[in-house]
Amino acid sequence: MPLLPDADFIRIDFVDEFAQWKPTGKINVERLANYLVERYTITSNDVLIGHSMGGWVAIYVKQQTGSKTIQISSWTDQRKIRLPIHNLNVLRFLLFSGVTQSRRLTEYFHAKYPFPESAALHRSLMQGMRRMNRRYVYQQLQVLFAKASPLTVAPDLRIHTRRDSIIARPDEAFIEVPGDHFSLVFHPEKVAAAIDF
C-alpha cells in the first residue's frame, strides 16, 4: 500500500469478515461479495485490488456495483485454480476427516512447492492452515469452488506471473510481473508500478 498513490485504503481480512458475518447454509463467492458490498457500502466509485481469492471476490463485487477491479495472481475462471480436486463434496470430506490439515499432506504440498524465493512464506501458510478452524476453511472452499452465476464483467487490470504454481495464468491479456504467486510480497515495486487507478 505505501507504494500506491494516496487513497483511503480499507484492508479486508476474510478471517475477520467471516467471524463478523457468521453465514449459515451454503455460500459462494456471490454471497460473500454481496455481504461485502453491504458492509462497506461499495459503489462504482471504489477501486478493489484483490490478490488470489481476494481478486475472485473483487470481480463479483464489480459485477454487483460496477466498481473498478484489479486482480493480482487471481482468476475469473475457477478452472484456473491448480488443485487436483475441485469437487466440494470430496473437499468437504477430506477436510472434516482431517486429511486436508494433516501434517503429512501439508508437508507433501510444501515439498512439491517449486519456488525457493517464497518457500518460507509458503511453509508458514501451510502450517497456519493446519491450525485454522475447519468451518472457516470450508467457507473458503465454498467461495473458491461453489457454483456462481456466470461473470458478465472483466477486471480492469490483471497482474500475473508466468511462474505461478497455485493459479494458472489468464487466457486474457495481463501485465506480467516477476516472481511467483506471491509476487506482491517479493516484488511489490513491480506490482505497484503496474497498478493504475
Rank of each mutant, 00 (worst) to 15 (best):
G54Q: 04
R82V: 12
T69L: 03
I10T: 09
F186M: 07
L157A: 06
F197C: 08
G54E: 04
M132L: 15
Q78T: 07
H51S: 02
V191P: 04
A146V: 02
Y113P: 12
G50V: 00
P5A: 10
G128A: 08
R11P: 02
A19Y: 05
A192M: 06
D6Y: 12
L3K: 07
Q71M: 09
T24P: 06
I10P: 00
E176T: 08
E30R: 01
W75H: 13
E38V: 04
L91Y: 07
E30M: 07
Y138Q: 05
T161F: 10
M126F: 14
F93L: 15
A154S: 09
R11G: 08
L157P: 03
N87P: 04
R123D: 01
M132S: 15
I159S: 07
L105I: 15
R103N: 12
R162H: 11
F109T: 12
D46I: 04
V47T: 14
D8T: 08
R104C: 07
Q63Y: 03
I81F: 12
L88P: 00
S124H: 13
K62D: 02
N45V: 01
A193F: 12
D13Y: 15
S149H: 05
I81D: 09
R134Q: 14
L94F: 09
R135T: 09
L94P: 02
L4G: 06
D8M: 01
V143M: 02
T43M: 02
D77A: 12
D156P: 05
F93Y: 14
D77Q: 14
Y113V: 11
S73V: 03
R134T: 11
L157N: 03
T106G: 02
V37Q: 08
Q78D: 13
Y113F: 15
Q142K: 05
R31I: 13
H51T: 00
P114W: 01
P150A: 10
H160F: 09
L88Q: 02
T100R: 00
K62Y: 06
R82F: 01
A173I: 06
E176A: 15
D77S: 12
E117Y: 07
R104A: 14
I42F: 11
Y113K: 06
A19S: 11
S52A: 12
Q140K: 03
V47H: 15
L3I: 12
S149G: 05
I49F: 05
W75F: 13
R103T: 13
R31P: 11
N45S: 10
G50M: 00
E17W: 03
G179P: 10
T41M: 14
R162G: 05
L91I: 07
P116C: 02
T43D: 03
R134G: 13
P23S: 02
A148N: 04
A7M: 12
F182L: 10
R11V: 15
H187R: 12
D77F: 11
S44Q: 14
F115G: 06
T76R: 07
L91D: 01
L144V: 04
A192S: 12
N28C: 07
Y40P: 07
D156E: 03
E30C: 03
A120K: 04
V99H: 13
D196H: 10
S74C: 08
V185C: 10
Y138G: 02
K22Y: 09
I27E: 00
E17Y: 02
R131T: 13
L32N: 00
K80L: 15
Y138W: 06
R158L: 14
